[in-house]
């Protein structure tokens, strides 16, 4: 088993190990924040750790391992990276907007009121 990693030079193995640990550690810290924070708007910040630098570190480790081993092209990692860069902000933004919309429609005083305007129209989405 796992003989494909045996050809990896020591420096690449060390860097890959560090990157993997850093990525997983950051993701874990993010989910700890998801558990610890008190309100939804604080919690929405927590998973960003995993979905930016966390997955970035692991993708880098994967690229490093497979480009040093030259067993296959590193192109799939590039695709996943691009996908993550495009999608992470959109999902979080949508969730934050949905939460604000729900809280405002319930009259919660945790959120700021919509900017006062002659016709009470919800703000336009930014997309």
């Amino acid at each position: 088993m796992n003989n494909h990693l045996a050809d990896l030079p020591a420096w690449a193995a060390a860097i890959a190990a560090l990157l993997l640990l850093a990525g997983a550690g950051l993701t874990l810290i993010g989910t700890v924040g998801l558990l610890r924070f008190g309100s939804f708007y604080q919690r929405v910040h927590a998973p960003t750790l995993g979905s930016t630098l966390g997955i970035g570190c692991i993708l880098l480790a994967s690229m490093l391992v497979f480009s040093v081993l030259e067993s296959r092209a590193i192109l799939h990692e590039l695709l996943i990276t691009a996908l993550m860069v495009v999608t992470t902000p959109i999902t979080l933004m949508l969730l934050a907007r949905a939460a604000l919309y729900r809280d405002r429609s319930e009259g919660s005083d945790e959120v700021p009121p919509p900017p006062s305007s002659p016709d009470a129209r919800p703000p336009e989405p930014a997309e």
Partner: peptide
């Protein structure tokens, strides 16, 4: 700008008011 702000941990873009051209961040 919305993508940059949201992708940076610690700041989230919540709403944009077109009439006053202001943004609301958390």
């Amino acid at each position: 700008l919305a993508c940059i702000v949201t992708a940076t941990p610690g700041t989230v873009w919540v709403a944009y008011d077109r009439r006053r051209n202001t943004i609301l961040l958390h």
